[in-house]
Amino acid sequence: MRGYIARRILVLVPVALGVATLTFAMIHLTPGDPVVAMLGENAAPADVEGLRHTLGLDQPLLRQYFIFLSHLLRGDLGQSIVTGAPVANLVLERFPATLELAAAALSVAILVAFALGFLASVRPGSGLDLGAMGFAVLGVSVPHLCLGPLLMIAFSLRLGWLPLSGRGGLAHLVLPAVTLGTAMAAIVARILRQSLIEAQAQDYMRTARSKGLGQRAALVRHAVRNAATPVITVLGLEVGALLTGSIVIEQIFSWPGLGRLMLQAIGSRDYPLVEGCVLAFSLSYVLVNLLTDLLYAVVDPRVRLG
């Protein structure tokens, strides 16, 4: 197990380096001059040169790249052009809000997915199955962008049960988390149903039943564990979607997370801040993938032994 973890973490290094390089390339190699974009077309040439020097953009590209990497290793993401505050601090300040939203959405997704997946797999083809899977198809098809305003109209404007927007207590978290988690719940429910049905047809299930286990006990003790691998794969893939989906959700619900910070930074052409936000998002995505791989090994011994 230890060897497996070490291998996975080693693989992470080149991918993280790649992500950092791509972020750098995106900001520095795309056409258009960020300094001119920041100051406007009519800025005095002296100002442009000054800012370029301050940002280190007058250095050769390769040198800029190595400076960027060495600063990154020390956790230094540069300063925001607008406020002058260190980018790392701004990012860390907003990150918990995004994490909170993503974790809440993940919980919603898992709860709903397992409920639906179980209900549907108990008797495939029954009305219960059709209902659960119908909901799943609908859940996948309604984008966050539409579901969010819909829920806002229903639960906070019409019924007045939940706050409309902003971050606060648990009540504030419900609508954004449900909006963000629904699509994931629908996808995971479908996969879970499929793999539970497949698992139930296996020999070990017949053995479990014939030694006297009830259907429910056999399902919970044997089928779930075996059905877990594809579910974890999809969960891992979808958590990435969750992180980035939060950008839209944060904008809809005025949630003060990393996504809104990034949009503000884009709006004010604060490139170091944009760079910092992109890095934070993509590195957490890479970390989530690592966690998924490790979770595989926990659930399925074949992964760490093979």
């Binding site: 080149p14 991918v15 790649g18 992500v19 390089t21 791509l22 972020t23 995106m26 900001i27 795309t30 056409p31 258009g32 960020p34 974009a37 990435g240 979607a241 992180l243 980035t244 989906g245 950008i247 990034m262 884009i266 944009v274 992109v278 998002f281 993509s282 995505y285 890479v286 993938n289």
Partner: peptide, 24 residues
Amino acid sequence: MRLIDVLLAFPGILFALALAAILG
């Protein structure tokens, strides 16, 4: 394939967002 791995390590919409921000 390694290039694709790195690109996929970037969540799609984030990449598009950053690119759209730079391209205008």
